[in-house]
Design a protein around this nucleic acid. Sequence first.
RNA 1: GCGCGCGUGGCGGAAUUGGCAGACGCACUAGAUUUAGGUUCUAGCGGUAACCCCGUGCAGGUUCAAGUCCUGUCGUGCGCACCA
Length: 823
Amino acid sequence: MQANYNFTEIEKKWQTHWEKTQQFQTTEEPGRDKFYLLEMFPYPSGKLHMGHVRNYSIGDVIARHLTMKGKNVLHPMGWDSFGLPAENAAIKNGIHPNVWTWDNITEMREQLKTLGFSYDWEREVATCHPDYYKWMQWIFIQFFNHGLAYKKKNPVNWCPSCQTVLANEQVVEGGCERCHTPVGKKDLEQWYLKITDYAERLLNDMDGLDGWPTKVKTMQRNWIGKSIGAEVDFPISGFAETMRIFTTRPDTLFGVTYMVLSPEHPYVEKLVAGTEYQNQVADFRKKVQYLSDIDRTSTTLEKEGLFIGRYAVNPMNGKEVPIYIANYVLMDYGTGAIMAVPAHDQRDFDFAVKYEIPIVPVIDPCDDTIDLYDLKEAFVSEGKLINSGPFDGLDSETAIEQINQYLEKENIGKKTVNFRLRDWLISRQRYWGAPIPMLHCDHCGWVPERLENLPVLLPTDVEFTGKGESPLTTSKTFLEAECPTCGGKATREIDTMDTFLDSSWYFLRYTDAKNEMEIWDKDKAKYWMPVDQYIGGVEHAILHLLYARFFNKFLYDIGYAPSVEPFTNLLTQGMVLKDGTKMSKSKGNVVSPEEIIQKYGADTARLFILFAAPPEKELEWSDAGVEGSFRFLNRVYRLVFELRDELKDAPKEYTVATEDDKELAYHLHSAIKKVTEDLGNRFNFNTALSAVMILVNELYRYKTVRERNEGLLRHAVESLVLVLAPFTPHICEEMWEQLGHAGSLYKEPWPTYDEKATIKDEVEIVVQINGKGKEKIYVASGLSKEAFLEETLANPKVGALLEGRQVVKMIPVPGKLLNIVVK
RNA sequence: GCGCGCGUGGCGGAAUUGGCAGACGCACUAGAUUUAGGUUCUAGCGGUAACCCCGUGCAGGUUCAAGUCCUGUCGUGCGCACCA
């Protein structure tokens, strides 16, 4: 051991040791408590950033702590390695995506290793490896065989910059999730996964996810967007088909004064064909089509519409009402058509005022301040029904029930549940993804590739232009194939899968990552699943976490996933900021992990990140704070260096004798207790570390006292090294060795504490007068309420306080305070 | 507009159950060590000259006691948003 803390040497030494001894490789041990700890695997961009370091440092503390506590910990790592950046690099630099990606993986793996994370590298997966995407394709075929994958022509979100379609979830504020380019619409035939079949379960099963942040659950609930209402059919005068609408307010049916079709609604063309309205309607539709999604859905956009010369019949009262098309009705929600009740819906109200359509109130608010026949705005709450024939006088809730029954009895509608969630569009017109393992045959239609032919390999003879169709069309070898069903000529699907599919099941593959015969051994999956703790950025609250839950449920249904939900506990870590904003190249405020590791070592980097803020909060990077963490590690190192020779031979048994001993024992056991609780019950690493720092300060005090108790001191220093080990593993291994132990400290059990030692004989008590602290006194701890009151009153300081005052009440809180209420 | 968070010293943050507000760290100040700087060590560090007193965004309320609970309000961050 050198006198100076040589972190470079120490970290290299122990990383090599862990690798050589296969310290963190795990296998199933039935009967032993398992813990599956998972951090979101990274996209291999080539460079690790601070967000990664934070994510994985948090995970590593938990993994190492639980390992020391005797759990069988699964802690894997891998690569979400399909995706657009690789392809863009290929277009720009002429490097094949495969080469680019694997180079990056190699580089990032090395970086992760310099941070000393306790991964079982034997389980590493890369989604771009054929051994992985073979099973991705297998899952797709399972979806197809169960009727949950289908191809459909539909207007889809198109990112002109990425030259590909996007799922609804990947459109953020009308722009592409990745490049923020405004997204347009294109009519394309694409593959979809029927996630909507799982909407109800995805929603309901969240009730059991107590270990998830409310925020994430709320976001998913809103995204799924369940609304209960009714579908009602309105006959159209002079037209064979009826107009089906969805409403959440069947109680307002009698207040309908007009109807609206979405401009894209398939009926529109037929309804105006050959009429004087035909041209106007065509113009209007064109105008709406050119609007981007951002404008179309903006609340500030003026409502515009057009009467199309047709009338619908209200099935409740037989009244005819005009049919409009309008920009505020969207084709892809509900039925793409609405009934308009201007008196009780603000949007309809605005529209009715603009186009001078009658406003008929049917819900009485029972409020004198509202004049129902001269409304200034729509009354949108519930109330009592009026102008509603046989339903007059009912409150909204009862009316909804009775009207729904009436609708069903008369066969004009029924109670319906509607979801905001759309089916998941998974086709991508790009190269660097898993090929969709489907073939089209003129005789058999769309058929899946035979399982024994998987994987459908990505062809390598492909040109990258970044334009037009999927690059797979440029392959001479890929397109033509044999139909798996009839043996005739068939053509392969040229689109690849959205990379979010790859990351929707990797956590299951880790349980048996190298299996070539099946997707995973069910017994192995059963041993490890579900993931006990999942850690990652909140930006995945909807996309990844919803998709992964969907995949897991499907795989559960077909007997492959052992649990209904994949992730029991979820921790969403906060962002790493510098100067108050997210680190980014364009702002020039990026702090590179490599630099910090080189200057201070991985242990310092980890310590700073864990100490500066609680994990779920944002973390402001501070160079001075890093210095402080480095200083602390030096301080601990010096302490051990100075004491090691005498402590090596110190007795293992000891008795706490002097007041100084008691003080050290108190701090020792308090620190162990605090760290144990903060790591076990809640992940507050910052407060755990502050407890460790207090212990170090105490040890510096204790080593200067006249009568040192070597046995106690040894126990204290060794415990210090052990409780600090999950946070800063390398320096702790080194110190452990220097204290005379052979091998890794991760074979040591987690230190235990003596509750009695954490309680002082005498405790400080605050004496309050009317709730204000006046005196501090010491009394024995552990007293009953009565004895406590007696003791405190016997104290002369309290006596002095009572002098000349009229006591109304005494409130004793044993061990804490005495509040005396006086007049 | 709707939903969910968050507002505590110069800064990051602590106070887990309603019970001493400001743990721990950073920055700062003074002193010791050092030829000097750095390192290290010691002490101080919410406001106020000061004891009293005042202090957890603001205004109320409940309570013997409120950073913590309730009502309102302002600010801020995130999510969703013409969802019928």
